[in-house]
């Protein structure tokens, strides 16, 4: 069974931006922010004041408080992948999305193998139970 500590989640504060993919590609993200690209037209920006998206006047830019996140070590990532992920884990840095222990989740993988594990707050208790 998992040898590692279960992840500790906390609510994340960020911005959700839906815009033309090209506008998101070109957007000057605020310094220190962390951008989770969910799909070509969808970005979750953590750790920044309200970001602007030049180039798309119709962009949706709105606070995003729907995710809980947990910083997980490379060892924890490997452990979660071994026991809870049916699909093959890519190597970072990148965003890996899909079911983890049956719960739709996201892993923002860093180059060193550690990651930020994201889950909808509404399903956080389920993921905690299953990884814990």
């Amino acid at each position: 069974m998992p040898a590692c500590e279960p992840p500790r989640f906390e609510g994340l504060v960020g911005w959700r931006i839906i815009a033309d993919p090209s506008a998101l590609d070109a957007a000057p993200w605020p310094a220190g922010s962390h951008v989770v690209r969910i799909s070509p037209d969808d970005a979750f920006v953590i750790g920044a004041a309200e970001p602007g998206v030049p180039g798309d006047e119709h962009a949706i830019v709105t606070p995003e408080l729907g995710f809980a996140g947990a910083a997980v070590s490379a060892e924890q990532v490997a452990d979660i992948a071994l026991h809870h992920i049916e699909w093959q884990m890519p190597t970072g840095p990148c965003v890996a999305q899909g079911q983890i222990a049956g719960v739709p989740s996201k892993l923002v993988l860093h180059a060193d193998g550690s990651a930020l594990l994201l889950v909808a707050c509404a399903a956080r208790h389920e993921l905690e139970d299953r990884l814990g």
């Binding site: 026991h83 809870h84 049916e86 222990a101 049956g102 719960v103 739709p104 909808a120 707050c121 509404a122 399903a123 208790h125 389920e126 299953r130």
Partner: peptide, 12 residues
């Protein structure tokens, strides 16, 4: 093993 039937959501 490893299968979970449903994910039940909770409101805040």
């Amino acid at each position: 093993a490893g299968y979970h039937i449903d994910t039940f959501r909770r409101t805040p």
